[in-house]
Write a protein that binds this DNA or RNA. Structure first.
Lengths: 196, 196, 196, 196
DNA sequence: AATGAATGAGCCTTCATTCAT
DNA sequence: AATGAATGAAGGCTCATTCAT
């Protein structure tokens, strides 16, 4: 039986180490050494597996993005109505895995990174589109096309804003109140449309 | 008559140069040389006037913040009702001076910087409090204490989210749609409360 | 019967791989990985068989030198007169095996290497002496001791110079014209001595 | 009166330091630190003035080349006949400034460098052309076109070969014997032509 | 016999910062 | 008031080399 390759383990370990390191510094201004030592390996190994710092960062972004996606898919699977599907998307964004301090900080750092890295910008725009289309798809069954799009946009912006503010605080994240804010936003928006 | 010192001019020029440079790079990873040459002076002079890079950055933040404050005060001055005062605060946030591409980019960069700089964090928390209290003060005359606070928080988060998304795009900012989003949010929220 | 060891094959393969790699880079700044992958093996194996990069390089030099020697001996064997022996030595230097692009490049690289490696310098001085004594031995039968030595020295320098210039060009080597240059040199030198 | 800029001084000092350092190591595998400390400055300054290691190396080549050119021009100026012009070119190549140990080593190193650097290759080909045309121009007045070209090529190759061999030795250079070799080569070649 | 995994050491380069003028 | 000159400190990256399997 072939000896199982350690590469995937190392890669995952290094990406998690990157998240930790980024959270500690609060920015991408972390050294490869810092990241590597968080993973208990040498900086050279990080280069070996990722080819460079930028690539490690981007891989980590991709990693986080795919985690979010998995969570979203899982939540959507449980939903039984359009409105529940909206809630599912929101819940995924603020699920414990996504909304813990380290992840939020890293997330915001990536937002920032996207301003100078094309690769990062592309990844984020994928996320933007996905979030938007997930929300809009469900909302279109609850409001006319026009409104659905606008509500989705507002909700997405609100979610980002809540992340951002969460990232600023040094307090542990309170997912519940964040979720409530967005849910109320949706409810009010749908009600506002109906009463027109 | 004493020859007027050029110091204030230089300081302002350098802070504006910093904003430009930060916008170009999309991050604080700009060299002092870059900033200085944007202002047409030597890097050494920037040091002379500000004492260091961090201090120049923080001064620039303060500068931006005070601009926003002035605009807000001016807008509030024109308001004739509580609801108009809410709109005034919103309008100030998205006023042309504040919401042009360069400023938005810089703003986001500062958000990010606050995660690793205490001075920046302090400044931002001042902004947070002020925005929140401005909104809440007006809202308290339109909804009960409890609700007012929550609506203010939501509005603030939404504003930040809209800034953030604006900063990502490479398109020119569209203040109007942003304002509309927030205004509708407020309206819906107030309506939602009323119907309870 | 014992399975024949693969060691000699591997060693030869690695030395040829080194020649190829050196030619491609145009210098000794090739990585062990490059060399090893040219031979289709892992870098670790190259270490295993040679003990280190320097030793692989030196072994490759020795390899090339012994090839040249074989060719020279073969050519000398065919010669039937002193003058033909001179031509034999020259012909060997520019024989197809020796004077192909890859070999020339590698050869020059070794010249360069000799400036910082004692082992390389020793090997090269062996080559120098051998070339010189081969030429001088034949020439002594055509001119007095004194002259023979000087002509041999000149011829050797000329040969090196032609190699050097060949190595610079990116065109395929033209052995014929090189040989002609040296032969004419010899002829003229002998004629020059005679007319004294 | 304007303070005289130290830039030219530093640049020259650094190029000379590079020559020294290269001579010591016998190759371009010298660190910027080594070079800089030979010049008594920090490595950062070398970068400041040259932009990088490669550029410092190429500048040094250019420097050496222009020295050689100056010497050649000066020697040619003293020549009174075609044959003397040939001698002038040869003398320049082996003049004390050019043919001291350090310079020779550096020169050979550059030959080698040209195999992997386009900039270096371009510079060297300029030297080649110049040397060749200087020799050929003078020779054309002493022998027919055809021959002149071939003799010039041979002389150039011989000169390079003598440099190369000088660079190998650890003994001080003996310009005289080198010059004599080339002069005899020329004389014999011209005589050889005449007797045809 | 052979290699994947891992690392230590070292180099180029960048940049904020200082200082003499 | 202003700057050219210079540097120390630090980070990303490469690569020969080692070792357990």
């Amino acid at each position: 039986m072939a000896r199982p390759s350690v590469e995937p383990q190392r890669r995952t370990a290094l990406m998690n180490a990157a998240i930790k390191a980024i959270h500690e510094r609060g920015s991408l201004e972390v050294t490869m050494s810092e990241i590597a030592s968080h993973a208990g390996v040498s900086p050279a190994l990080a280069h070996h597996y990722f080819g460079g710092k930028d690539q490690l960062i981007v891989a980590t972004m991709r990693h986080l993005l795919s985690e979010l996606r998995k969570t979203t898919v899982a939540e959507l699977h449980k939903a039984r109505s359009p409105r529940q599907r909206v809630s599912a998307v929101i819940a995924a964004c603020f699920s414990p895995e996504q909304f813990e301090q380290e992840t939020v900080t890293t997330w915001l750092t990536f937002y920032h990174y996207a301003q100078s890295s094309n690769a990062a910008a592309r990844l984020l725009s994928v996320y933007f589109r996905r979030l938007n289309s997930n929300l809009a798809a469900a909302l279109r069954e609850l409001a006319p096309e026009q409104c659905a799009g606008e509500i989705a946009e507002g909700a997405a912006a609100l979610i980002d804003g809540l992340y951002l503010r969460q990232g600023m605080k040094h307090a542990p994240p309170s997912a519940d109140s964040a979720i409530r804010q967005v849910e109320i936003f949706i409810d009010n928006a749908l009600a506002g449309f109906a009463s027109t």
